Simulated assay, not measured.
Amino acid sequence: MTALSYPEPVTVPARQARSVLLRTGDRVRITDVAGGQVGDVFAYNADDITEYHSAAHTRTHTSRLFPTLGEAFVTNRRRPILTYLDDTSPGTHDMLIAACDPERYAAYGDPGHASCAENLALAMAGHGYPALPHIPQPINVFMRIPVGADGDLSWFAAPTRPGDAITFRAEMDCLVVVSSCPQDHNVINGAGPSPLTLTVLPATTEEKIR
């Protein structure tokens, strides 16, 4: 894994994705610039992309629908990949809803619409992976999909305010892709898709050797 420097925040334009490479102990802060924007987060082992964050394995690991602060997201090999380190948002996130994809927008009668699945594929192609075998279940930061007592899911606008942020710590060298969700056929992105930013905070010496 090549060491990279991110002296400035990386802007994720509305409806697009950007990626960052993290070394173990590095942190990435995802900020909702305008408020009300969902981000689809994907995390891969930087040395072997057949290992990636798994929502199902994480739910098994934590016995929760979403980790609480200090808990880890784990991979399909049950190893920690990211830790939920800090959160200035209302703390409402999701790991049940699949990434939007071309098929979903075709069903809306909107073929050619941008999607998180395609955004992920484009980002990974830029890292030399032109054909992903499948699209993992993302960590849907800032997404508000409450589960009712009867098991029904509700779709609400993201409750974030401008500048709200969530921070993850890398527990292995990893490639993190974040898509500023382009969904505009329902209310999850409020008035419509808007940008996110990614700020990489390098690991301290203690974090590198822990």
Rank of each mutant, 00 (worst) to 15 (best):
R27E: 14
T11A: 08
A34V: 10
M172F: 01
D87A: 04
P136Q: 05
P130Y: 01
A46S: 12
G112M: 03
T92F: 00
E207S: 05
A131K: 12
P102K: 03
R210G: 08
N189G: 05
A43F: 00
V10G: 07
L96N: 11
F168I: 14
T92K: 12
T62P: 12
Y129W: 10
D47Y: 00
G192E: 07
R77W: 00
A121N: 08
R79S: 11
A98L: 03
I166W: 01
D86T: 03
C181Q: 03
F142D: 13
L21Q: 13
M95H: 06
Y6V: 12
T75S: 14
L153G: 07
A56F: 10
D101P: 04
R64G: 04
W155G: 14
R18V: 13
R77S: 13
A43W: 00
S89Y: 00
L196D: 10
Q16D: 15
M143P: 05
P90M: 04
V200W: 00
R104T: 11
V187L: 03
M143E: 04
T204S: 15
H113N: 06
P7V: 05
G148S: 05
N45M: 03
M143W: 01
A123D: 09
L21P: 08
T58I: 04
T68V: 14
T2A: 02
M1G: 14
R210P: 03
G91T: 07
V12P: 09
Y44I: 13
D87V: 06
Q37G: 02
H134T: 14
D110R: 15
R27D: 11
R29M: 12
D47S: 08
G91K: 05
P182H: 06
I97P: 06
A123V: 10
N140Y: 00
R210C: 08
A3I: 14
L122T: 15
A72E: 13
A170Y: 03
R15T: 10
